[in-house]
Design a protein around this nucleic acid. Structure first.
Length: 494
RNA sequence: GGGUCGAUAGCUCAAUGGUAGAGCAGCGUCCUUUUAAGUCGUUGGUUCUGGGUUCGAAUCCCAGUCGACCCA
């Protein structure tokens, strides 16, 4: 009768499955238990009354992330959405059988516990446990407790582990919903309506980008995933919805990089009877309030550390406003840049160390200088205004210089954060701009949008903010992947 | 799409052509106020995959998979 059992003590998955089997054999199924917390961890910590230990009762639930077994008593910590709280178990309190059962728990198990709050010798508010219940058995071990999880692939594919063991990831990814929530409240407080417009579109428009294509079977038609929400929202300006916004998922079938994910989130805001200058005030108030009320720098200022440049970005100081053409003249050292020939511009770009494709249009050569040599240097909040008209067909032409448009591009930390326009509402000019941009591909013009404009769209200011990039800025993240829960990766084995 | 770098125990990392190791986690013991708890002992490997070179490959070469960074 001495069948040698294989030693599975090294196989944590097998050990945990064995523990689960034992529990079930004894008549308890952790996955069928129920438990209702009375407090989150943070609420429980706040509920403790100084000097009155063991008087306030609380029930908390969460994942076991620390176990300190001291023989006949244990200190453990559980993690819930709000954070961690320490639990203290004594054999004398919970009883012999329950204490033995507690010792069978593993890091990662999800439990509920009720008891009373007290302060330990070292000053930590702790729940002295009277009763506990296992609510979910973790069959897989957690990553290492001190170094956390650092393999980037596993961080992205198994984000749930990242946020359990990496406090920085957790804080960063918890900040994003608070940022989005603040934006909604900010806009709703100013009478903006949040609209929802289609993701599937017959004609993708509102931006220059390659779309994803899909097919609707019942309609027998190809559709594209939207590349912007602009043209839909403007239709609603025509409809008399004066202040509208959408926080929407946008899809662009382009490269993946530290600043690009194929799907990302864009805020677009439109305000009738306003213009790009109104959008300046709006975006500045929005960003200042986000820094002040959501990020809350520890020193009470409106300064955020910008690691790549080593500077502090000061949202409280005056924001620079400068014309695009002036920045180009400054960067090239050529006051007559815009009067130069294309050959001169190519030579000028090359003097700045930029390789340019001779097939490019002149404005593209100039814009290469802007995006490679100017934009990265604009760390403090900067409104770059009056961009060349070719860069955006949806904005109003500047009254005294029809080669530019009434727009700004807000640059912060060397990154485009928010473009905004005085929206083009002249249907004839809009049609001409579309046709010039579309060239041979006129079938891509959104005729239905032009029809809407002919019904009359009020003058309006509009603005777009890339939420992901905004989160990069506000959280000090290095990559868009750090502010997206599940960034796009190649399908692969987890 | 191109270039560079990487993949070793559940996790974080060593081992630079010659017996694959450590810390944490796990398993077993001691400990009733711990803070990366401490203590004694101990298990654990398809070295990403497939070829090749070699007496011998985690290590060198080729191809592939996945990832990171840079460039387009």
């Amino acid at each position: 009768m001495s069948d040698a059992q294989p030693d599975l003590s090294h196989d944590q998955h097998a050990v945990r499955r064995q523990k689960l089997a034992e529990l079930r054999a004894a008549g308890t199924d952790p996955f069928r238990a129920s438990f209702t917390p009375t407090h989150s961890s943070a609420q429980a910590l706040r509920a403790h009354v100084a000097g009155q230990d063991y008087t306030v009762a609380a029930a908390v639930g969460g994942r076991l992330v620390t176990i300190r077994d001291m023989g006949k008593s244990q200190f453990v910590k559980i993690l819930d959405q709000d954070g961690q709280i320490q639990l203290y178990l004594k054999r004398d309190v919970v009883g012999e059988a329950a204490y033995a059962a507690f010792k069978r728990l593993d890091l990662g198990d999800i439990i509920g516990a009720e008891g009373t709050l007290f302060v330990t010798k070292s000053g930590e508010i702790t729940l002295k446990v009277d009763r506990f219940v296992l609510l979910a058995k973790a069959l897989r071990p957690l990553p290492e407790k001190w170094h956390g999880l650092s393999d980037p692939e596993q961080v992205y594919r198994q984000r749930y582990l990242d946020v359990i063991v990496n406090a920085e990831s957790r804080a960063r990814l918890l900040l994003r919903p608070r940022i989005v929530s603040h934006i909604r409240r900010f806009l709703e407080d100013r009478r903006f309506l949040e609209l929802e417009t289609p993701v599937l579109e017959a004609t993708p428009g509102g931006a220059a980008a390659r779309p994803f294509k899909t097919h609707h079977n019942a309609l027998g038609a190809d559709f594209f995933l939207r590349i912007a929400t602009e043209l839909r929202l403007k239709r609603m300006l025509v409809g008399g919805f004066d202040r509208v916004f959408e926080i929407g998922r946008i899809f662009r079938n382009e490269g993946v990089s530290r600043k690009h994910n194929p799907e990302f989130t864009m805020l677009e805001v439109y305000e009738a009877y306003s213009d790009y200058r109104g959008m300046m005030r709006l975006v500045r108030e929005l960003l200042e309030s986000l820094v002040r009320d959501v990020v809350r720098p520890a020193d009470g200022s409106l300064r955020l550390r910008h690691a790549p440049s080593g500077q502090d970005i000061d949202f409280g100081a005056p924001w620079r406003e400068v014309r695009y053409k002036d920045l180009i003249r400054e960067a090239t050292g050529d006051a007559d840049w815009f009067a130069r020939s294309k050959a001169d511009k190519i030579a000028g770009a090359e003097r700045l160390g930029l390789g340019v494709n001779p097939a490019w249009e002149e404005f593209e050569i100039t814009n290469e200088i802007f995006s490679k040599r100017i934009e990265p240097t604009l760390i403090q909040p900067t409104f770059v205004t009056h961009l060349p008209r070719e860069l955006c067909p949806l904005a109003k032409l500047t009254a005294d210089d029809p080669s530019t448009i009434d727009v700004f591009e807000l640059i912060i930390g060397g990154m485009e954060v928010a473009p905004a326009y005085s929206e083009q509402n002249d249907p004839d000019v809009q049609r001409e701009m579309f046709e010039r941009q579309a060239g041979e591909e006129r079938q891509n013009i959104d005729q239905d949008f032009l029809l809407a404009l002919e019904h009359g769209m009020p003058p309006a200011g509009g603005m777009g903010i890339g939420i992901d990039r905004l989160c990069i800025l506000l959280t000090g993240a290095e990559s868009i992947r750090d502010v997206i829960l599940f960034p796009q990766l190649r399908p692969g084995a987890t």
